[in-house]
Amino acid sequence: MDNDLADRRAERGWSQARLAEALGVSRQTVISIERSRFDPSLPLAFRIAATFGCTIEEIFRPDLAD
């Protein structure tokens, strides 16, 4: 699943570790999500959306190639 998590994080000037701490997950999890190598669980997706004050659909887009 494609996402713009890295851009949104960069806009806030947050490090991956800072975002990981805010989400309650490991830094590796943030790295894998940003590289679209890991689709987060629904609860984590909701926490990500809440952290950036938007909806899940605004951050994540289905990869139509799959």
């Binding site: 309650g24 997950v25 490991s26 590796q28 999890t29 894998s32 890991f38 609860p43 984590l44």
Partner: peptide
């Protein structure tokens, strides 16, 4: 216990 442990990529 970590309440979000299942959300981490390592758990997967």
């Amino acid at each position: 216990p970590d309440p979000h442990v299942e959300d981490s990529v390592e758990a997967r």
